[in-house]
Design a protein around this nucleic acid. Structure first.
Lengths: 154, 154
DNA sequence: TTATATGCAAAAGCTTTGCATGGGT
DNA sequence: ACCCATGCAAAGCTTTTGCATATAA
């Protein structure tokens, strides 16, 4: 599902920022590039700060500000953390995915499911609400007898 | 859906705590009573601290410790917060519910849906994982033309 | 040249921990 | 009498804010 959209997202991000009147800066650009490269599934703000520091770019303040900006422009989703840590992932225009968290390892695997999306839509209709976003988080353990990762998304 | 189970949960909590070798204390008892009364849908740790302080019971440290204990014993669920805030709700043995968050007001409404539960189960099976817990959070706005609250859970 | 982006350091929350004390059993 | 539960205060973390400086446009 990903691959191509990384570039498309990068282009989209550049365009939206420019249209919104933002100037370009080294730190935010670095955040954007990192997200395009590795942000297809949750990345914590702390991780991002750390990665960029290794590269000698950015500061905590700037990274948080950049992520907030991207979030406001709808370029990234903020994903709830169980531990008061901000996590982000790029808002992929091509597909919507959810998360499975392995309770033993803490690893997060993305997955997609059409029927799940459909049911969520019908639930929203039943409740009489207009849906803007939705998250599904499954927690458990990957079965030992499972050969590959559980992330075999369809 | 609730009503009866508040009492049952209270009894369950007392029993499990005793069986696990805990003694009873004023602060934890107050937390438990508050959860039984109002914890059927998310309550933040801060809220709990505040409520109990008004009643002249408990301190932040004790409340957090009590909630952690209840969580370890499986008596409450910790619900992800978008803002680094610990939220809890009682683990209702009778039913499982999810949350709709009104983006405008911040209000949280619980809802249940059988088909959603079923689909989540089949997704877990397809992924080859053993499910221990799952959360679904819908975000959006309640439609103006909707008469009552969106929480009309079937 | 002017407003924005950045970085440092300090502040602000929420949560956890240390330690002495009070209260169950 | 034990020793767990509690409360206060201090420490720890992540995230936010203030302010001076560097830099796009």
């Amino acid at each position: 599902m990903s691959g191509v959209s990384a570039e498309r997202w990068l282009a989209l991000a550049d365009r939206r920022l420019r249209e919104a009147g933002y100037r370009s800066g080294s730190a935010r650009s670095a955040v954007i590039e990192l997200m395009a490269r590795e942000g297809h599934c949750v990345l914590s703000a702390q991780d991002i700060v750390g990665r960029l520091r290794q590269a000698g770019v950015g500061s905590a303040a700037t990274v948080y500000r950049a992520l907030e900006t991207l979030h406001e422009l709808g370029l990234v989703h903020r994903v709830d953390g169980r531990d008061g840590v901000a996590r982000y992932e790029i808002a992929d225009p091509d597909g919507h995915h959810h998360h499975f968290v392995d309770e033993r390892t803490g690893e997060v695997w993305p997955f997609e499911d059409e029927e799940l999306e459909r049911v969520i839509g019908s639930v929203a209709e039943r409740l009489g609400v207009r849906l803007l976003a939705h998250d599904v988080t499954l927690r458990g353990t990957a079965r030992e007898d499972t050969p590959g990762a559980p992330g075999a998304t369809t």
